[in-house]
Amino acid sequence: MELAPFIVTLKTASTATFLAFFIGIGLAYAVVRMRHGQGLADAVITLPMVLPPTVVGFFLLLLMGKRSTIGQFLLQFDVSIVFTWKAAVISAVIVSMPLMYRTARGAFEQIDQNILNAARTLGVSEWKIFWHLMIPNAKHGILAGAGTDVHSSAGRVRRDDHVRGQCPERDANHVDGDLFGGSSQRL
């Protein structure tokens, strides 16, 4: 039995979950504290969750492919993202992070605003409020989000795109698309 796909899946999923966990919480905190434009930020962050995977992949390719600005910039340092397991991580993070973000945001919003305001009037810094009040009191919601996130990341990678990326007979562009998008039309 070939173990490589399994190991790559595990590696990608755990890295993606780890990243999505912190990025999701960070974005949730930022959006909860926004005074204006909450709706817009919310829409942009959750967009990857509702778009078809091919579309997300296509956008990522446009953004990071060899002909894009970011791709060109990275190439100067001899770094190419597409074609590697890092690409799979990025795509998994982009698609699964909204779940983490949504649950974390919901958990933050559940906290009684008076408790946070009381801490503020008592002179407690926003940093301490985040670590000692918001995180402990939103713990359960956040952990539930993380659980869903692992599944989501693993599911993303499970599509064995990266394995197909190693097929020599396929042209590079198509592989890129698979790597980023998790296209489900192939085969």
Binding site: I115, N117, A118, T121, L122, S125
Partner: peptide, 21 residues
């Protein structure tokens, strides 16, 4: 000034104690 720097004590209706402490 942010509330942290005002030195104003606010007693909330529900007291708003920190539930995890």
């Amino acid at each position: 000034l942010p509330p942290q720097l005002r030195r104003v004590g606010y007693l909330f209706q529900n007291y708003a104690l920190f539930p995890n402490m």
